[in-house]
Design a protein around this nucleic acid. Sequence first.
DNA 1: TTGTACCGTTAATTTTTAGCAACACAGATA
DNA 2: TATCTGTGTTGCTAAAAATTAACGGTACAA
Lengths: 188, 188
Amino acid sequence: MEQHYLLLRKHIAEICELTDAEWDIVSRVFTYKSLKKHQFLIQKEQLVPCEYWIIKGLTKAYAIDGNGKEHILQFAMEQYWTSDFNAFQNKVPAAIFIDCIEDSEFFCLKWEDREYLCHEIPKMGHFFRIKSHHGYIALQQRILSLLIETAEERYNNLVKKLPKLIQRVPKKLLAAYLGVTRETLSRF
Amino acid sequence: MEQHYLLLRKHIAEICELTDAEWDIVSRVFTYKSLKKHQFLIQKEQLVPCEYWIIKGLTKAYAIDGNGKEHILQFAMEQYWTSDFNAFQNKVPAAIFIDCIEDSEFFCLKWEDREYLCHEIPKMGHFFRIKSHHGYIALQQRILSLLIETAEERYNNLVKKLPKLIQRVPKKLLAAYLGVTRETLSRF
DNA sequence: TTGTACCGTTAATTTTTAGCAACACAGATA
DNA sequence: TATCTGTGTTGCTAAAAATTAACGGTACAA
């Protein structure tokens, strides 16, 4: 477990170095959670108390359309943050599901604790601001790729950008992420 | 001009109330800019010194693909923020263009001033964190709509959600935003 | 005024993708 | 062991959208 905390500290340090005293405050508020493959981290319609930093494992965030088809918003693996950020922030029921593609472990951060950290340690406010910014940029890139590229180009770019992810994610889920059927993906 | 500053203050107050002293600090750092229809706010490959709050007017943020086709990321009108946030934050050349669909006026905020405000006035850090969060959520919704809905559904939802925007934006630009050709949009 | 460029629409054709069905294969289970 | 379920692939057909072309309307400039 110590090892996990060290990794989280290192993750934060990529954006801002914390003193030992500050880290003491920060590390105290995270709680640990462990889930098996196929278990839900977040279920639609339910409140979302936390955002989650992934210690180990792999999750998918997705919505189900009127025909029961799954559409994947985000894959998240080690050192990624995941949650339904809208539900989390605005204390409304979740609009999406997040479940585990592999057995996974998380550090959980409650909204009040997040606000508390931002208030107590301005550096953490900075950290979350930058993280949020990065998330925004990633989504913007994704929209551009959905608008500009063909499904095949999207697939090739994904392979180039996150080859490790490809190996861990079944192709039918990649298809649901790229916005095509698994049959279409299979023909690339 | 006083009127414009009042509107900006009101816009910020929707997230956090500033004291007169704080507002004095904040208002001081914004500069004014005015552009005519078709003029560029941001050009690809160039550095992006500011993010922009729109006092009046309408802009589009877009990328050009290999075939010279335009794909629109964002329309922004009165009281919206716009910029190439990646280029702005990381001081790298812009990946997109932003130009004016109508004559437009802006308040400009430089990166250093933004950092300064966040540092001096924690409330402003809070403000930008929340704004960024909102932006993130909007993009996430957009991705879901690109993945789940047909182009026709996307169009109808846009009409329902932003009827004013529809009236101000030529249909060929709406098509570039929805991810279809103008001929396809014309058949809905 | 005439010309010119752009815009929105419609039609015909082609390309792309979805939907459905069948099948091989692997891993899990009884 | 035989069976069941989920996954990835392929063939065929149907639907959706892009492409190309044409046409009328409008704004703008020479």
